[in-house]
Design a protein around this nucleic acid. Structure first.
Length: 475
RNA sequence: GGCGCCGUACCCAAGUGGCUAAGGGAGAGGUCUGCAAAACCUUUAUGCAGCGGUUCGAAUCCGCUCGGCGCCUCCA
């Protein structure tokens, strides 16, 4: 079964064909080239931003799981109005200012168990490629200059607005003007290169001093890193227009070849029914949530668990529910490791594990339907639990389950990461308390047994009495 | 005003023409237990916002109505 993903450009669920030519074997394909719109490093990213980044990670992990090679770039926007304003407000250099938020962002990615991508270019390192685009556009007559800024003329580009289906629309009249729209020939024309303002960073170019417009950096980096048409470009839905539409226009006008084959856009995270955004102030940063005691693992689970093309209402209760779902996974692992029976492996289990993996793969291959995939996974957990309860599994079966879980975790990235480690606790002491309690129970000194249990509970340690003994876990 | 998406149980969420409407949380019952807790098992929608229509057959297609959201402006 081929891997199919919704393509914003065509408006349909299309098979992913890296390199543009269909092959017999997945291994015959060239690396899947992916570009993801990254953050503007002017402050902390919020959890809505991370929905997209977690999605990017899920996508690349699934591609690798399916046997594709992946070559993935994500940009860091380190020069724009907000970063310039932020640096100025603190009286430090733009570099120093953006380095701080870049570091924070990278830490947050790591916290969420997001894999590093192959390329992490900064806008300010790609100025030469931007100038090349401008040169091409200049030579081909797509740009004009107004008051020292260079604009792209969308009227000259055939097919502008194809992806956002904007071409038939009228931009609503009476919209407020932003400072850049001043003097443009068409309101939709966009700045490629902005005239320098006083005390602002700027670069020298053959077309005058200035700094990059927003859209050009992505086109420039893609050109610089991948050279030609790439397979996948991802970002939030809010970038479809105008950002991605403008990228297409300037890249295809400059180089005369298809820019991106497959556009993938992630829907918004909502809070109380409206879009989470900095300007509305209704946002949580990752660090806000960690301070409240929620685990990165639960947050990753929550963000990944809803289908990427559906708006998702974010709630704290949702994180708690995610946490409970993860408990169910953890409990399976604990019960497995407690199996004592020695016997030959159960063929039934191997079959169960294989069909779980293929069911999961089919679900995720179908436009990354993670919700269905998780359903398959939890049905498997249920089935294995039943086998354990019926005493049908032996120690020889543990590996088959763990192996299957590891395969899944290569895609999900939340099964085997641990937040609070048992090793952080004084295990020997806990074990001794458990032994003392068992002794007390034996001589029917239940008051002492309960006292010990309460003492441990107060420290966040939960005792589980099973017929094979007592085990403990952290709350 | 233009374009688009969504409305499935107490909550979250799959399913987009055809067996008994996945899965997670919560609730209820059970197993285990000195009692608990935890864990596991069982269970919870004759119905899929409402009303019409198409069809042998619709949550799924079409129309209308109601409700919510997004984009059209910096934004993941």
């Amino acid at each position: 079964m081929p891997l199919k993903i919704y393509n914003t450009l065509t408006g349909s669920v299309d098979e992913l064909v890296p390199g543009g030519t269909r092959k017999e074997q997945v291994s015959d394909y060239p690396s899947v080239t992916i570009y993801s719109c990254g953050p503007t490093v002017y402050s902390f990213a919020h959890i809505g931003n991370f929905r997209t980044f977690v999605f990017n990670d899920f996508l690349r992990r699934h591609l690798k799981f399916r046997g594709f090679k992946v070559n993935h770039a994500m940009n860091i926007t380190d020069v724009d109005d907000k970063t310039i304003a932020g640096a100025r407000a603190e009286g430090i250099s733009l570099e120093k200012y953006t380095a701080r938020y870049t570091d924070i962002f990278m830490e947050d990615l790591k916290t969420l168990n997001i894999e590093p991508v192959e390329h992490l270019p900064k806008a300010t390192d790609s100025i030469d490629s931007m100038i090349d685009i401008i040169k091409q556009l200049h030579d081909k007559g797509y740009l004009y200059e107004k008051e020292g800024s260079l604009y792209f003329s969308i009227a000259k580009f055939n097919g502008y607005g194809r992806m956002s289906r904007l071409d038939t629309r009228e931009i609503k009249s009476g919209l407020r003007y932003d400072t850049d729209s001043y003097g443009k020939d068409d309101v939709r024309d966009f700045a490629l290169w902005k005239a320098p303002k006083e005390n602002e960073v700027s670069w020298e170019t053959p077309y005058g001093r200035g700094r990059p417009g927003w859209h050009i950096e992505c086109s420039a980096m893609i050109r610089k890193i991948f050279g030609t048409t790439i397979d996948i470009h991802t970002g939030g839905v809010d970038l479809i227009f105008p950002h991605h539409e403008n990228e297409i226009a300037q890249s295809e006008a400059a180089y005369g070849e298809t820019f991106v084959r497959h556009w993938i856009h992630v829907e918004h995270l909502l809070v109380n029914g409206s879009k989470m955004s900095k300007s509305l102030g209704n946002y949580y940063t990752l660090r806000d949530l960690l301070e409240k005691g929620y685990s990165p693992r639960s947050i990753r689970y929550l963000l990944i668990s809803a289908h990427y093309r559906k708006q998702f209402n974010f709630t704290l209760e949702g994180i708690t529910q995610a946490d409970q779902a993860l408990d169910r996974i953890d409990n399976l692992i604990v019960r497995l490791s407690d199996i004592k029976k020695e016997a030959a492996p159960t063929p039934e289990l191997r079959k169960l594990a294989d069909s779980m993996i293929s069911g999961f793969t089919d679900a995720v291959d179908d436009d990354l339907n993670i919700s269905r995939g998780l359903g398959v996974f939890f049905e498997f957990i249920h089935a294995v639990n039943t086998l354990i309860s019926d005493d049908k599994l032996s120690r020889a079966d543990i590996d088959a389950v763990v192996e299957a879980l590891k395969k899944l975790d290569a895609v999900l990235g939340f099964i085997f990461i641990k937040d609070a480690s048992k090793a952080d606790r004084d295990e020997a002491w806990i074990e001794s308390m458990i032994q003392e309690r068992l002794q007390a129970k034996k001589v029917r000194n239940f008051a002492r047994a309960d006292e010990i249990r309460n003492l441990l509970t107060a420290q966040g340690i939960i005792l589980e009495d099973t017929k094979d003994g007592t085990r403990w876990k952290l709350k």
